[in-house]
Amino acid sequence: MGYKNNRIGYSDELLSSRSIIRRGNFALIPPDGLVKNTVPGFEDCELSILSTPKLGATFVDYIVTMLPNGRNELGFGEEGVETFVYVLDGKVKISDGETEYIHTTGGYVYLPAGKKMYLENVNGANTELFLYKKRYEAIAGHTAHVVSGNTNEMAAEHYEGMSDVLLTDLLPKELGFDMNFHILSFKPGASHGYIETHVQEHGAYMLSGSGVYVLDNEWIPIQKGDYLFMGAYVPQATYAVGRDESFSYLYSKDCNRDAQI
């Protein structure tokens, strides 16, 4: 059964998919065809695992629909693993076992390694979340800390001098953090200033609009609800398409660490 469409039985059309999987390089995963995964601790939740090391990522991303009684009382995360949650739609209570945060659409919480994340849907209806976890890479003299905020209350900045491309940083630019989350938003017709090629990898969830993304010299249409994995050194850039709605996406980026040999 597909995760998003809950379709069962035969299709009236030929089987087809927009999915593109290039393990270790890049992947496009649309909502059609995503299957529901059972993950211990997530009760009354419909969950799909997106990027994992099996795909070539050093992190794990999830898309989660919490039903009205949805919760995780067991705790998300494990020793040495940092976690992040972003509220795509609805209302959720998030706890690290000591402090509770109530967030609506656009809200997020980052928890450093050593703290488990507890979740409870308090929306009275479905709540949709984007979840992330990664093994934390510590360095001497610096530590990460809990971060909580809502992107609807944050100022975006012009991205690399382009007034029609906006960037929102969700985490502090501090050496204690070995990764960051951003929202990048392109008005229709806007684009990156150049095709990027870099050591950082990304997991990106499309929040609104549509675009055409170049990944390893393949131009690929993409839209709201799609998910992208972009591995290290894959050439990448996008043009926003459409008429009125900006093309925006939430994405992670590893940072603040030297390369290992």
Rank of each mutant, 00 (worst) to 15 (best):
V35H: 10
R22E: 06
V85D: 00
M66Q: 08
M230Q: 05
H198W: 07
Q200P: 06
E82I: 06
V64L: 08
I183T: 03
V241L: 03
G56M: 03
Y249S: 02
P40S: 06
Y10L: 15
D226L: 04
G209E: 00
E160F: 12
A155I: 13
G106P: 02
E153C: 07
M230T: 06
Y249Q: 02
E73C: 13
L167G: 07
V122D: 04
C45T: 10
V199T: 12
L15T: 14
I220T: 05
S210A: 11
S148C: 09
E160R: 14
A156R: 11
L175C: 13
G24H: 02
K134S: 05
Y249R: 00
N69V: 09
N121D: 04
F181Q: 01
T58L: 15
G33C: 09
K187R: 10
Y233T: 08
E137S: 09
A138N: 09
E160I: 15
S19T: 13
H142K: 15
E196A: 08
V64S: 04
G209P: 02
T105F: 05
P31L: 03
L34R: 10
F42D: 01
N6S: 15
G114M: 01
F186R: 01
G189A: 07
Y239Q: 10
A232V: 05
E13H: 12
I29H: 01
F130W: 04
E120R: 05
N37Y: 11
E78A: 12
G75D: 02
F59L: 08
F59P: 00
D32S: 15
V122F: 09
H198L: 09
R23L: 11
E98F: 08
R135K: 14
H158G: 12
S191L: 10
S16T: 13
P188L: 05
V109T: 01
Y10D: 12
G77W: 00
H158K: 15
G9Q: 05
V234E: 07
D258W: 15
N152W: 11
P68Q: 05
D164P: 02
A140V: 14
E73R: 14
A125K: 13
H145M: 09
L88K: 07
I20N: 05
G75C: 03
T197D: 14
F26W: 01
C45W: 04
E120A: 05
E153F: 07
Y227H: 06
Y108V: 02
G106Q: 03
L129R: 01
H158S: 14
P30V: 06
S11V: 12
D12Q: 15
T65N: 11
T99A: 11
